[in-house]
Each structure stands twice: as structure tokens, then as C-alpha cells.
Nucleic acid binder design. Structure first.
Lengths: 152, 152
DNA sequence: GCGCTTTCATTGCAGATGCAACGAGATCCT
DNA sequence: AGGATCTCGTTGCATCTGCAATGAAAGCGC
């Protein structure tokens, strides 16, 4: 008679370390944290704020909506990041006269100054990462490219 | 005279979409969200809870400390996830008689039952992801492997 | 054996986050 | 024109999160 089999037998093997969503989450957390420390320690900004700033540095004058669509943030995240950045004097907000629902966000001179210092550091970080990964870097990027296109 | 140069000139080009930490964050968010919907809709659990459950399914009886070390969570995350899982009747907690600071977490029959249903779904999800990415999947994994070893 | 330090798990608190609702303004439709 | 609908940005609220502090137990040194 073989009833009372230990229930362990019913569970399939599953290796969390080989589970791609898990691996991605860990990888993202590690690289982001490294960077977040830099941003915060040196400039007192968070990652959502960083994303908004980068987009403004690149695109000049934009609305919350523009940023939302382009930097993978929800509009309320953009809105709150922008609020903090305004309070710090790094960006300013005007009203768009052509469509008064829209805001026009742009860097202040102070914000521009900070980005002039921060962007080279971010570039250096990217270069270090590429150097550290060597050959594997190109593979990682190719894989990410496929994944990002696929899940878009 | 060339003072009053527009300040735009001072900012280096920077492409957020080519910035690896950003790409990783977006990729992780997308894949996790896909999965989180499954977990939540079907079983009412969150990702931290899922991680704890997987570890318990794999390792039998373990402490918070064990889990913390192995599934990239802080101990308070584990502790709170375990609390919710206990309240749902999916895991149980005993005291370790050999070291009474330690807890012994394990799946209840109900939890075991749920995992017997959930693990195959997770495997299927992984298989789908591999299929969708095709060639690029191996590259992604090779790149992640290097990154995870490098930043460990 | 007895204080001192370390380890383990939990939790209070403050700040962050996500959802849904809101108000203001634009657009559409007849 | 003007009511219904849609878009944009913000915010109230409940929940979640991360940090640091706590309490309980073990280990360590003398």
C-alpha cells in the first residue's frame, strides 16, 4: 500500500535562479542601486527625478505627457518628480498657451548646470559597466533589445 | 564677441534608451508585471510572497535568514511576506528548538497544493519567453550571467 | 557565571507609491 | 452654440517600503 506518500513528491522542481524574470529583477535592482547611490549622495535626486531631468536635457521643453510616454513612467510619477524638482529649483513649469491643459517643463540654469556635471558621470558609469562585462556586454544588449521590442 | 552662448551647448548628448541600467529597469518591470498579474489574479499573491513560496517549495524548512540570503530580499521583506502568507494559511511558522532566535518556515498542505498548480504555470511562462526571444534568449542569459556574477 | 557583543526576526514610523477620482480645458457632434 | 466626451495634470487616500530601533536569544571573553 502506498498511500500517505509524502506530499513533497507532488511539487515539480523549479529553479528560481534560472527564472528570467527573477534574474532581470535582481540585475536591475543591483545596477540601479549602484547608480541611485551616486545620484543621491552627490546631487540629492532620485531615479524618477533623474529620468525626468535626462529627458529635459535632451528635449528642451516638454509636457508631463511627453515624458510619460518616453521614459517608462506613469504620469503621476512624472508629476510628483517634477514637483520635487521645481521645489529644488532645478526645473521650471509654465503653461502652454496653445493648449492650456499642457504644462511646459524645462531645466533652469541651475538644473542645466547640474546636468552638465551629472551626465558625464553617467556616461562614465556606462563605460565602466561595458568594460567590466567585456564580451558579455554585447550579448546582454542584444538580448535586452529583443526583449524590449518583444514586450513593447 | 561670443558671450551669451545658449546654455544648451554645455550639455553633452546622453541617450537614456541606450543606458543599460535604464534598459534593465524597463525590461525587469515589464516581465515582472506580466507575471505579477498572473500571480495576483489567479492566486492573490505578490512577488515577494512568490519568492518566499518558491524557496520553501524547494528547500523545505528554512529561516528568514536563509531566504534573505538566497532570494535577493531584505529580511524585513521576507518577514512581512511570511506574515501575510501565514495569514492566508499558505505557510506555517515554528520556532527552531536548537536556536530559538530562528524561525522555521514551511509550506502548509494548502500552500503545497497551490504551488503544485503555480509552478507549472511559471515554467510555461519561462518557456514562452524563451520561445518568443528565440536566438536572443541565449544571449540575454549569457549577458545576465556575466552581470550577476560581476556585481555580486 | 556574567556582562558585552552579535545575530535573528519583527515592527514603528516616515516617506514613497499606485489607484482612482477630480477639475480644468479641449474636442467632437449635432 | 452647447452638452457630452476625452485629455491632461494633480492629488487624496490607502497601502507599501525602507530604515532604524527594538527585544529576545546565542555566543564570546574573562
Amino acid at each position: 500500500m502506498d498511500d500517505e506518500v509524502p506530499p513533497e513528491f507532488e511539487l515539480p522542481e523549479f529553479d528560481l535562479y534560472g527564472f528570467t524574470p527573477y534574474r532581470l529583477a535582481v540585475a536591475a535592482k543591483r545596477t540601479s542601486e549602484e547608480l541611485a547611490r551616486l545620484y543621491r549622495a552627490r546631487f540629492g535626486i532620485t531615479i524618477p527625478e533623474w529620468r525626468v531631468l535626462v529627458h529635459l536635457a535632451h528635449s528642451g521643453k516638454v509636457s508631463v505627457r511627453d515624458i510619460e510616454a518616453r521614459v517608462a513612467m506613469e504620469k503621476y510619477e512624472v508629476s510628483r518628480a517634477a514637483k520635487r524638482l521645481r521645489e529644488s529649483g532645478l526645473i521650471e513649469r509654465k503653461e502652454n498657451p496653445e493648449d492650456r491643459r499642457l504644462v511646459v517643463l524645462s531645466l533652469t540654469p541651475k538644473g542645466r548646470e547640474m546636468m552638465a556635471e551629472l551626465l558625464p558621470l553617467a556616461k562614465a558609469h556606462q563605460a565602466r559597466l561595458e568594460a567590466r562585462l567585456g564580451e558579455a556586454f554585447a550579448e546582454l544588449e542584444a538580448g535586452l533589445e529583443a526583449l524590449l521590442n518583444e514586450t513593447k
